[in-house]
Amino acid sequence: MNALSPAPEALFGPTVTHPRDGGQGHNLESDRFNLWYGATQALFDVTFAVERGLVTALIGPSGCGKSTLLRAINRMNDLIDGLKIAGEIRVDGRNIYTPDTDVIALRKRMGMVFQKPNPFPMSIFENVVYPLRVDGLSDRRLLAETAERALVDSALWDEVKDRLQDNALGLSGGQQQRLCIARAIAGEPDVLLMDEPCSALDPIATARIEELIDELRGQYTIVLVTHNMQQAARVSDNTAFMYLGRLIEYGETEAIFTAPRDTRTQGYITGRFG
């Protein structure tokens, strides 16, 4: 059977998977989560749990819904008109899709890094402390300390410490992306959501970001969307493979890449489609 045209029972079979428990528990769970853009269903019954403190990669071919799933976790999809959902996504056991959820508080617990670096048109310093600014903080020392810590953690401090007041748009692409990571962690989130953070970067900048992800492991729960399988293999602890809006397989990265259980996973990671 060809992976490009899977049999219907293979596509619509049960997708519940059992992730490894790293011993620290789960702080992100998705429970039979469905999502529609207008009449088009983008996610089908996605159920999985992300382990605290580890790096979880979401891989899959373009349009498989991995970015949609990621953006569902901090409700960035809310901006889209005609969005409908069913099922639950739980953060620390609480469903975030209840009407009384404070979306802003939720987003403050999640840092997000986007596909293309999107620094704000202001100084490097102001970019980093933006999450604190929106909280209304203006204590200079606190801001300066936070900025330094975030920039050190994002491995950018040495490059920018002498020009914190320069415009962030003057940085190189890789620096801009690390600045965005600094901004994401400056608000001291629990979770980092990364949506193909290296797709717009050259190989050297990509390597820097991957190193950085490795360093951040343990401090943050990281969910990383990537279409680069080598990257997933290099940096993640767990990997989830998605295909056509479904979670096909989820498990330890090593297992997924060496002994995939599903033929579609195998087809994708061996490069037969995707």
Binding site: N74, M76, L79, I104, A105, R107, K108, M110, G111, M112, F114, K116, N118, P119, F120, P121, Y130, P131, R133, V134, D135, C180, R183, A184, G187, L193
Partner: peptide, 21 residues
């Protein structure tokens, strides 16, 4: 650009803060 707004919202800014800042 949409990416600017999303970057701001993802930092936990409200809609008004995003517009304002």
């Amino acid at each position: 650009p949409r990416s600017m707004r999303e970057g701001s919202l993802a930092c936990g800014a409200s809609k008004w803060q995003t517009i304002r800042r």
